[in-house]
Design a protein around this nucleic acid. Structure first.
Lengths: 156, 156
DNA sequence: AAAAATCGGACCTGGCTGGTCCTCTTTCTG
DNA sequence: CAGAAAGAGGACCAGCCAGGTCCGATTTTT
């Protein structure tokens, strides 16, 4: 299903919500606004803080706020902060260089990496500002190759 | 990590391997060629057969073969056959119309669907024939919009 | 000093993934 | 016609991890 985890989904929702605010907000407030269970929201926000996407202010009147402008934070960053590097298959995970035993059999590998890169590029191109605005217009289009992209352009 | 399951990975490897062959092959042979554990390969191939991607011949000298030309079977079909409909988040799974409780809070939803659609389109555009050829050249590129695609074309 | 927050963990638990096995049916071959 | 070869269709299990909760320590405000 090519699914991302629910935690990550929460992360995107929370981060997008933060993008509509200015000052820091407490976990309780954010959880209420987004209807995410409070302890879970806390966990997610902690992870985002560790990833440097949000800054935390401790103590009374503290809370979380985005560490950068909404337009400068990508969905890919949120996903990476919560799930580690984006890798569609284990093969494409560069960190484990254990030399996949199928390597000689699967000429498939290079292609997976390309697919993976494509997905990653797509997610990097989408900012929290984009997500915060509903009705963003035509957000993403895909093309198989430059030539194909060209053909599409002409057809419009 | 936006990861697909290992079973699905096997499915792609097996299907891509079948794309390089002509007649039906037994599970044992396919498993040996691809270094996928035999019982697991059987399971995967059964699922592919149920999805109509491969045809099975029973009895002695039977086996599996692709049900269509490699160029006419997409990676998306393989994934769908093994994992059900592609849905990045639960929200984007159209089958469950239980009205996600966050709905009013998350203007995010429409955007997820667009991302989801983009990924799906990308996977639909990649055929087994593409996967079977290693070194396929620039297989996929992404663009945010037609305008952006245009800009990219010019920059090359 | 007390209250309000986050931090950094530990902890549990249910479901799902990956993997195996067994029996039934079908088909070919000798 | 008998037996072997092969898939169909399940049941089944073990391990892992996502999802979720909770607690004590620390920091800051009031």
């Amino acid at each position: 299903m090519l699914r991302i985890s629910k935690l990550t989904d929460y992360g995107v929702v929370l981060a997008s919500h933060l993008a509509t605010l200015d000052g820091p907000r407490s976990v309780r407030e954010l959880a209420e606004d987004t209807a995410v269970p409070q302890p879970t929201a806390a966990k997610v926000l902690k992870a985002l803080a560790k990833g440097g996407l949000v800054t935390s202010t401790r103590g009374a009147r503290g809370g979380y706020a985005l560490s950068a402008a909404p337009a400068d934070i990508s969905i890919a960053q949120v996903i990476t902060a919560l799930e580690g590097p984006i890798a569609v298959t284990e093969c494409t995970d560069e960190t484990t260089d254990d030399g996949c035993s199928h390597e000689e059999h699967c000429g498939v590998r290079g292609n997976w990496q390309r697919i993976n890169g494509a997905v990653q590029t797509a997610l990097e191109a989408i900012s929290l500002a984009d997500m915060a605005h509903r009705a963003g217009g035509a957000l993403i289009t895909l093309s198989l190759s430059a030539a194909d992209a060209n053909a599409r352009l002409r057809s419009h």
